[in-house]
């Protein structure tokens, strides 16, 4: 059984059709990257998996059951920004996930349970390379470190799928390369299923196991919202042919130029 199973899925906002006739199966352990021109609905798609948005119609199954219609522990998320808690230090940020689960009333652990949570959180911080900053507040961290923290926060919950919404888009190229190594390493070690949205085709092409390109196939210049995007390419990564890369790059760029024109 697929982890995520999508058949004939549509997403519309009134007259505006964002996604049309989407078909997709995602298996456990896959690392999918989603690319496409801006406004092609890749973020909307991620939001539907997260539970922030619901599809207009179609089959949309998570482990064979309908998707929960609000964010929940099965799906971890790392946004581009703002996904760490500024009032907690690094260690407390990671502990929060454990505390919210175990303490239903106060959301806070004490005594031995707290020690245990601290230990688990510390191990997680070591895995993402933040152990030395455990007692700093997020405002004292660089952008890359904040993203490491956000990943650690999510992983401590052992989510069935980890969603990444342009997580490295705001980082310097050097830092972003470090983050690629980190996320691939974590993915292999923890048997994660990852779905990542990115606007950087290069990133999407070389990271993960499967590249999905979202794009509008039909285009009506008089009514640009009339047709939604579909998945135009679904290729296993490892298919590193330059020609394919150039072809996709060209199709995305053309679309973006159209949008700007």
């Amino acid at each position: 059984m697929s982890l995520i199973s999508i058949k004939n899925l549509w997403k519309e906002y009134g007259e505006n059709i964002v996604l049309e006739k989407l078909n997709l199966e995602i298996q456990e352990g896959e690392f999918c990257t989603l690319v496409g021109p801006s406004g092609c609905g890749k973020s909307t798609f991620l939001k539907m998996i997260l539970g922030q948005e619901t599809p207009t119609r179609g089959t949309f199954l998570f482990e064979g059951k309908p998707f929960p219609q609000e964010p929940s522990v099965e799906r971890g998320i790392v946004f581009q920004r703002y996904s760490v808690f500024s009032h907690l230090n690094v260690l407390e940020n990671v502990m929060l996930g454990i505390e919210l689960e175990k303490s239903k009333f106060l959301g806070k652990l004490f005594g031995a349970a707290r020690k245990e949570a601290q230990k688990t959180a510390m191990e997680m911080l070591e895995a993402v390379g933040l152990a030395s900053s455990a007692y700093k507040y997020p405002t004292e961290l660089s952008g890359g470190m904040q993203q490491r923290l956000s990943i650690a926060q999510s992983l401590v919950k052992k989510p069935k799928v980890l969603l990444l919404d342009e997580p490295f888009g705001a980082l310097d190229p050097g830092i972003s390369a470090d983050m690629h190594t980190l996320i691939l390493d974590l993915w292999k070690k923890n048997n994660l299923t990852v779905i990542m949205v990115t606007h950087d085709l290069h990133e999407g092409f070389y990271l993960g196991t499967r590249l999905l390109v979202f794009d509008k196939v039909r285009h009506d210049p008089q009514a640009p919202d009339r047709y939604g995007a579909k998945i135009t390419y679904d290729i296993p990564v490892g298919d590193n042919r330059k020609s394919v890369y150039k072809e996709i790059d060209k199709s995305i760029k053309r679309e973006e130029n159209d949008n700007e024109a």
Partner: peptide, 10 residues
Amino acid sequence: EQLIKAQTLG
């Protein structure tokens, strides 16, 4: 983002 994150943390 923070509120959604908190929900995914349980």
